[in-house]
Design a protein around this nucleic acid. Sequence first.
DNA 1: GGCATTATTCAAGTGACTTGAATTATTGTC
DNA 2: GACAATAATTCAAGTCACTTGAATAATGCC
Lengths: 206, 206
Amino acid sequence: MNMVNPPLPSETSREDKIQSNPVRLGARLKLTRQTRGLTLKALALSADCSESLLSKIENGKASPSLPMLHRLVQALDSNIGWMFEETDADEGVVFRAGTRPLISLDPLRRGEGISLERIIPYSQGHLLQCNIHHIDVGGESAGPIQHVGEEVGYVLVGEIELMIGDKTFRLSAGDSFVFNSELAHWYRNVGNQRASIFWVNTPATF
Amino acid sequence: MNMVNPPLPSETSREDKIQSNPVRLGARLKLTRQTRGLTLKALALSADCSESLLSKIENGKASPSLPMLHRLVQALDSNIGWMFEETDADEGVVFRAGTRPLISLDPLRRGEGISLERIIPYSQGHLLQCNIHHIDVGGESAGPIQHVGEEVGYVLVGEIELMIGDKTFRLSAGDSFVFNSELAHWYRNVGNQRASIFWVNTPATF
DNA sequence: GGCATTATTCAAGTGACTTGAATTATTGTC
DNA sequence: GACAATAATTCAAGTCACTTGAATAATGCC
């Protein structure tokens, strides 16, 4: 190695050290927050920290302390483990039935008796969000998150009542729907068995 | 009808008169602008008007003069006609199983023994494309159309072989996949019954 | 303890968009 | 053609989500 020109000490090294991990963690946190339709302010409030700190964490300019991270994932109704989960964003991913990550949602935020089965893993670089919504008998979604974008779905099994805007539909297995995400929407299992909906939507950040 | 309490004259009526058409035109314009990735400022610049006017037009608070509208669609590389075209894009659309338009595809272009069932009607103004691919026994897709974007799918019934990039997967009912549209992809029915795949992809203009 | 490092906050700044009052065109009516 | 009425357009100010930088509080290491 050239002794006259030793490796630059500052510049990148500092940034890199900060970013090596945090940049991915940050991105994951951001994506999670956006998926939940939360603003920095809102998350900051429920995780009890400042808006600006969140901004820095999400952009890899700071890495949260463990207690902080814990409060964050809690507020996001996620868990620390899978913030670090490895995923392959740009090669194809195939998931077998029954092997997909299952997420139980905060009833207050997302609804009663609903769990999501992830079709598209959380990782950077995905354009779409896709989950199978499993709705227990009598379960229903909470207040809708309204955002720009579009939603498509297909009822795999069960009987549900779906409200889009001011209209109500009763859907059975095999029925499908599309609507603009800005329309208020809400659903409920009205059958006597667990219902499943294959649901795709464009992210809030569009 | 009660003559003592005639319908309220002002309040809503004025708003409604303004909004009746423009609100939809505005929404359409906004969607188009967003699809093009333009900001209000940018569009205002190239259509030679003020940012605030655009905001009002998009929100149905004003309706553009014809010259103005012309400059707008020109800047958006669209045309006035389809700004007024009827689509079910803005209200939700529900399709019952078995009532969806079925399209048999040109074997040369799309493949042998494949027909598509439209989940999202083929009208402009939709962000997503979505179809159920029905593949006859032994049927297979033709050369893939490669474009930027993302694809998600879910095997509803049957056994298929799916190639993504340089990998091959054998999928059964309930399995799902996601991949970047730029990767070459191809599929084939390898079972002994008709196979169906619920398939969503982002348009090229994403 | 003292010192460097880094997490965290506060306050100010930016960019995209919205709103309201003021101005300019358009339109209809006599 | 003139005169209101009405609505299109602009300017300036306001809001909202987010980012940045300097200041402060923790933390860990010697």
